[in-house]
Write a protein that binds this DNA or RNA. Structure first.
Lengths: 223, 223
DNA sequence: CCTACCGATCGGTAGG
DNA sequence: CCTACCGATCGGTAGG
């Protein structure tokens, strides 16, 4: 059921300018461009990745990229939006279900890490530097999606506090702690290494849950 | 005592090619170049920051940058090394002192966050993307310093487990969790905002400490 | 000879 | 979707 996050997600893009029915080949190429671009943007950074690099990796000519995308910056935007919408769609039924907050959080964490390890490029984008390259209007639209995602974590945290599961913390701070922590894992964890993705989910969730369950705050005077 | 991390650190660079005694002005300019470059590399990314941008911000001519630095890539390297050595020097006496591991960890966390908020640019560099621009030999040297830093966290974690303070976890994993989490804070926390750096240190340390103190692991079956 | 740069321009490549 | 290009700007270096 959550395996939707593992497949190379088929175009759920509403903004596609190409009639999909008649040109499935175009859709395939468009997706290929986005896949290779996502990975290269993530590995070398947006500015250092040329459209020639991307085109070569996608086996097309540089000019052809402009047939599918208006500009380099909108290619970045569409990649980020696609990733955000995919996780958002997978998480929405979870937060809406009747379920202990602790269970909901585990599902959000699992989805996040699973998507991250399955789509390194798509997941690793969206940082402050990359976002700054998006045209103003598109950036705002993307940041809106990102806020929706953070809001899900805030909501689950709030529920958990109400249910007496988590210590009464600042939910905004808590969400940023959790998301920052989860994103940081993407930077060094190799899913094909000695620690599997499944094991990482268990360890990361344990770390997060413990951080939330503190009831009597440790005294922390800065010497 | 820990305020050394707050001042614009004076050249502790052993690799400086300029006789410092006679030409303090040179040293000042060199430091200014490194400061502005660090911030711009961090904000816009290494590739997107031109030497002209850096020179303009430092009030000199672009060609003058080449008097102080052999290349753009070595400028990046020297910035990263300076940051690493500064924290390393501040932390070494702490880990060597006789002290409960919990106290040592608080000091390491405090230094990390304090340095981070005082020198956004210096601290935010060193990610996989930026590192890839360093010449091979220099990159290895820098990664060595970074490993030394991580080793301090591993050592303190190991001590804490031995002292029965922390749950017996994989210290490598734990260090990466902690450092990834701390670094992520740098990306969204504004020290001049509603949450002060001091408050952030308290909150972040509480979160970390709780994550380490779990004795009976929560059961985490993935539905 | 060295220091601390400047004005101009090098060969290549960027996005479009 | 490719060939053939453009305006501009890139990192780096020349002589003085």
């Amino acid at each position: 059921m959550r395996d939707v996050l593992k497949n190379s997600f088929k175009s759920s893009l509403t903004e596609s300018r190409i009639p999909l029915r008649r040109h499935e080949r175009s859709e395939l190429i468009r997706n290929r461009i986005m896949s290779v671009a996502a990975l290269m943007f993530y590995q070398k950074g947006y500015a250092a990745t040329s459209l020639d690099d991307i085109a070569k990796e996608a086996n097309i000519n540089k000019a052809a990229v402009y047939y599918y995308f208006k500009a380099k910056s909108t290619l970045l935007y569409e990649i980020c939006v696609k990733a955000a919408k995919t996780i958002l769609d997978a998480d929405r039924p979870i937060v809406d279900r009747h379920m202990p907050a602790e269970q909901k959080l585990l599902n959000l964490v699992t989805n996040h890490l699973q998507f991250q390890s399955a789509h390194k490029g798509y997941a690793g984008l969206g940082g402050t530097v990359e976002i700054s390259y998006m045209p103003n209007i598109l950036r705002k639209r993307y940041v809106g999606l990102r806020d929706d995602y953070e809001a899900m974590f805030r909501r689950v945290l709030k529920e958990g506090i109400g249910q007496g599961m988590f210590a009464p913390i600042n939910v905004r701070l808590g969400s940023l702690f959790i998301l920052g922590f989860l994103n940081s894992i993407n930077e060094w964890h190799d899913p094909d290494g000695e620690i599997t993705s499944e094991e990482m989910i268990v360890q990361a969730y344990r770390f997060i849950l413990a951080g939330l369950e503190v009831k009597k705050p440790t005294n922390t005077k800065t010497a």
